[in-house]
């Protein structure tokens, strides 16, 4: 919006400054961490940089005194993948089911969504206590998985509501009209058309799990997930290795997002060439 003399109104500068501040606040600290992760071997946890090296990444891999980064990373990736799959299965099916109101559907919906507003730490605590009460051992793959699902399932369901809200029923009716059975309708029309949204749900499930702390902290059992491991490191590791961990985990997050987005793009490109 330019005024007659070509100058911008003061509100433009105000909001531009506000946005600049927001971006600086969001990315500034992260950039500091990535830069410091290239600290020279003799450097410390703060500026100035004492030379540039990959020393601390090396220390990370050689796994000396920094804790079980490699193990916790593996656990986190597996856990996030399982969470993503379960979240997709449950929220897609639940989303489809909720399209037709059934007795108690509103109650079921609020029951599912309520876990979003419960304090995560206590959800985790409750799960851990219940496991102990039942005499079951807590573990990242059992109680930890459950704790994370209380967080990702309602999210997945809400995303599916948004995706299905824009999905016109007449496509499914057209499929039925042309003779498709219910299963063919789901396989040939509904799922392929919802696929970009479903990948979105999977992505959300994965990333929410990958950096979850509050619910997992007390429910993960003896072995840590990556965020818990890092959290522990912040209190007892006093070298730039910590920053190297931050840099590597960020790369993994970005990698997941890039894979998801390119697969959505690839699906759409394949569709335009598809002849089957």
């Amino acid at each position: 919006m330019h005024s007659a003399d070509g100058s911008r109104p003061w509100t433009f500068y105000f909001f531009a400054a506000f946005f600049g501040l927001f971006v600086a606040f969001l990315y500034g600290p992260m950039v500091v961490i990535y830069v410091l992760s290239f600290q020279g071997p003799t450097g410390g946890m703060t500026f100035p940089l004492n030379g540039v090296s990959l020393h601390w990444f090396d220390a990370l891999i050689s796994q000396s005194r920094v804790g079980d980064i490699a193990g916790s990373f593996q656990r986190s990736i597996v856990l996030a993948a399982v969470v993503a799959v379960v979240t997709v299965l449950v929220s897609v099916l639940a989303g489809l089911a909720f399209r037709r109101p059934f007795r108690g559907s509103a109650f079921a919906f609020y029951l599912a969504i309520a876990s979003l507003i419960m304090p995560g730490l206590f959800v985790g605590l409750g799960i851990a206590l219940t496991f102990r009460l039942l005499g079951l051992p807590t573990g990242w793959y059992s109680s930890g998985l459950g704790a994370q699902l209380t967080w990702t399932l309602p999210f997945g369901l809400l995303i599916m509501f948004a995706v299905l809200g824009r999905f016109n029923r007449s496509y499914e009716e057209a499929a039925t009209d042309l003779g498709a059975t219910n299963w063919q309708k789901l396989k040939e029309v509904t799922i392929p058309m919802l696929l970009p949204g479903i990948i979105g749900v999977a992505l959300f499930g994965f990333t929410l799990s990958y950096d979850e702390i509050a619910r997992t902290a007390l429910a993960a059992g003896a072995k840590n997930t990556l965020p818990l491991e890092i959290w522990a490191m912040t209190t007892n590791v006093t070298s730039p290795t910590l920053y190297a961990v931050g840099a590597v985990t960020t790369i993994v997050s970005f990698f997941v997002i890039v894979v998801a987005l390119t697969s959505i793009g690839a699906i759409q490109r394949r569709r335009s060439r598809s002849n089957t």
Binding site: N168, S170, Y171, E173, E188, V189, M193, R271, S274
Partner: peptide, 9 residues
Amino acid sequence: FQSYALFPH
């Protein structure tokens, strides 16, 4: 159908 409901994929 009214908006044809051609399968976009």
